[in-house]
Computed example of a mutant assay.
Amino acid sequence: MKVAFTYNLRLTDVRETEKEAEYDSAETVGAIAAALEAAGHEVEKIEVSGPASNLLERLEQLDPDIIFNTAEGQSGRMREAFYPALFDELGIPYTGSDAYTDAVTLDKWLTKLIVSRANIDTARGMLVTVRNFDQVIERGAGLAFPVIVKPNHEGSSKGIYNGALGSSVVKEPKDLPGALKSALRQYPDGVLVEEYIAGVDIAVGFIEGVGHDDGLLTPVEVMFDQPTSERAFNIYDYRLKNVEPGKVQYRCPANLPRDVAARLRSISSEAIRTLGLRDLARLDYRQRHDRRGAQRRGAALGAGDGEPARGRAPAQGPADPGRLHLQRQAQPRWR
C-alpha cells in the first residue's frame, strides 16, 4: 500500500519553548516510517510546514492509498482538525479521528460537557476566560481547594508546571486570581480550573481492531518521584513529559484492583463511543490515594491529551472515591 506519512517536525528546543512540544522529533518520524515500511508499505514522508498548497501538490503527485497522519495546524482552537478536514475534502482516507472529533477533544471543557451526558463523571471544574474572569473572582470558583489550573486547548502538558518557581496547583482561594491572570495572559482562549485529585496516573491505550477487548490495551501506570519541597504535588507536568522524561517510569500492567481495572475498561469504551474516537487514542486517568497514601478502589479518567493527551494535568476532585473521573479529554493519538 502507498502511504503518505504527514507530520510536523519539531525544530525548537522543548527546554526553551513550548511552541512545538506536540510536534514529532526526527527520531519519532524515523521510527514510525520504519515501522510502516517493515509492514510492507511504500512510505513517503511529508513534513507539512509551509503553505498548504505545497502539501496539496505533493499529495496530487503521490496519489496515496492512505495518509498516516500525525500533523496538526500551527495555531488556533481548531488546529488539530485542520488536516483531517483537508483530507476529507480531498477524499483521501487517513488514520485517526475525524476533524469534528479532533476539534471537540482539544477543547477540555466541551469534552467534559459531552461525556457528562453519557453519565461519565469528571472532576468538578469550570472554564475561565477573559470575559468571565471578573465574575469568577467576584463570586468565587465554587470549588474545593486545592485546584489545578491548565490551558483549555493544549496538549503535551503545555502550561502545566510543578516546581520551585511555581505550580499549576493552587492551594488557597486567595492565590487563584493571580494564577488565572498569569494563565490567561499565556493562553487567552481560556483555562480550565478543576479540583485537584491526589493519586497516581493511569493510561489506557486504544487501537481499533487489536486484541480481544474492543481495541483497549492493558492499563499502564505512570510513575515518577513523590512530591518534594520543590515539587509539592505529584503531577505529570511539562518538564516531566517533555524535558526530563528519564525521570518517568512505566509499569504495565498497572497496579490496579480488578474491579477498578474493569471500571476503567467500561468507561474507556463508553468515552470512545461518545466522543467518536477511531483508530488510535489514549485515555489518561487519575487513581485516588487515601490520606495514608494507600491506593483507593477508584480512579480518575483523563485524556490525553491526546492526544496523547492533549496538555495533561491530573484533574482532581473530592467526589465519591469509588467513582472514575474523566480528567483530561480523550484525544486521538494519531490524528
Rank of each mutant, 00 (worst) to 15 (best):
1 M>F: 07
8 N>Q: 07
18 E>M: 08
19 K>P: 06
20 E>P: 04
20 E>T: 09
21 A>Q: 02
35 A>G: 13
39 A>M: 11
44 E>N: 00
51 P>C: 10
54 N>L: 10
56 L>Q: 05
58 R>S: 15
64 P>D: 05
66 I>E: 03
70 T>I: 12
73 G>S: 07
79 R>V: 09
81 A>N: 03
83 Y>I: 09
87 F>I: 03
97 S>P: 08
100 Y>T: 13
100 Y>P: 08
100 Y>G: 00
101 T>M: 00
107 D>Y: 00
123 A>M: 06
128 V>P: 01
131 R>H: 15
140 G>L: 12
150 K>G: 08
169 V>G: 06
169 V>R: 10
175 D>V: 04
177 P>T: 14
181 K>A: 11
182 S>F: 08
188 P>G: 08
188 P>E: 07
189 D>Q: 10
195 E>Y: 10
196 Y>L: 01
209 G>V: 09
217 L>D: 00
218 T>E: 12
225 D>H: 13
226 Q>V: 02
230 E>C: 06
233 F>L: 12
238 Y>S: 02
244 E>C: 05
251 R>S: 09
251 R>D: 06
253 P>S: 07
254 A>H: 13
264 L>H: 06
267 I>L: 10
273 R>F: 15
282 R>G: 01
283 L>M: 11
310 R>N: 15
311 G>I: 02
314 P>F: 00
319 A>C: 11
325 H>W: 02
332 P>A: 14
333 R>W: 02
